[in-house]
Amino acid sequence: MLRYTLQRIVYMLITMFIIATLTFFLMKLLPGSPLKSQDKLTPEQITIINEKYGLNDPLPVQYVHYLGNLAKGDLGSSFQYDNRPVTELIGNRIGASAQLGFQALILGSIVGLILGIIAAIRHNTIFDYGATVLAVLGISIPSFVFAGFMQYILGVKLQLLPVALWEGFSYTIMPTIALSGFVIANISRFMRTELLEVMGSDYIMLAKAKGMSGTGIIIKHALRNALIPVITIIGPLAVNIMTGSLVIEQIFAIPGLGEQFVKSISMNDYTVIMGTTIFYSALFIFIIFVVDILYGVIDPRIRVAGGKK
């Protein structure tokens, strides 16, 4: 298990380093100095920034400098938001995004698992077909389309829920559902397949042959084994939710990180773009890492030494 964890950490660091490097050089490729277009800045500010970030130094020096700052957690300052540090901007916005993301992930996982389990247990019945159709629709209909239809029907037509903004729990409902659709679809589909496979396995047959009852077998033997592989898709799904929130926050005018990111793209606020990109990457990679470790903890074949994956 220790080896497994260390190996994951090394991979994580390598990937992070590559992303940081890539971001840096790609940003440097951008035509002209990012400061030129920023007419809001006074010449003094430009001098300060140039000095602080050594923008006049040769590229390798800047690069080393940049990596050093990164290691300290300094992502630079925004050119647009009064020269405020990017970390502070991220800090201000992360709350709403995190809440939205967690709600969507939890709702999606729970509903997805339930649907998947029902579909597998009631294999080849109307429940199964229903869940399968739902899953195909959930995977195919983009979250923004789903969001649009909800806004139009529940918000505009029926006026059941607020159309946009972020001022209380009721405001979170539609964006949460919109984001969780894809998660529900994927988890239910995956869970169904896994559970069906497990239910057909020899050890379930042996458990039956021991005289265990149907529900006992599902709870004690089948679910755990079917859930383990499902954990592996939670990571990518969490990343999908974060990506999706870039769009969903726009649509529902939610003051989150994604909305700020999109705004900084339209305003060419390069340090914010760069900083947020790095932050997102770190988060993505960290989530995948956590899920991998979780997988190792839950699966005895990895946790207990001597096991092979």
């Binding site: 991979y11 390598i14 990937t15 590559i18 992303i19 890539l22 997102y280 990457s281």
Partner: peptide
């Protein structure tokens, strides 16, 4: 594959 596609 480790690099998030979106970022690139």
């Amino acid at each position: 594959i480790g690099i998030p596609q979106l970022i690139l």
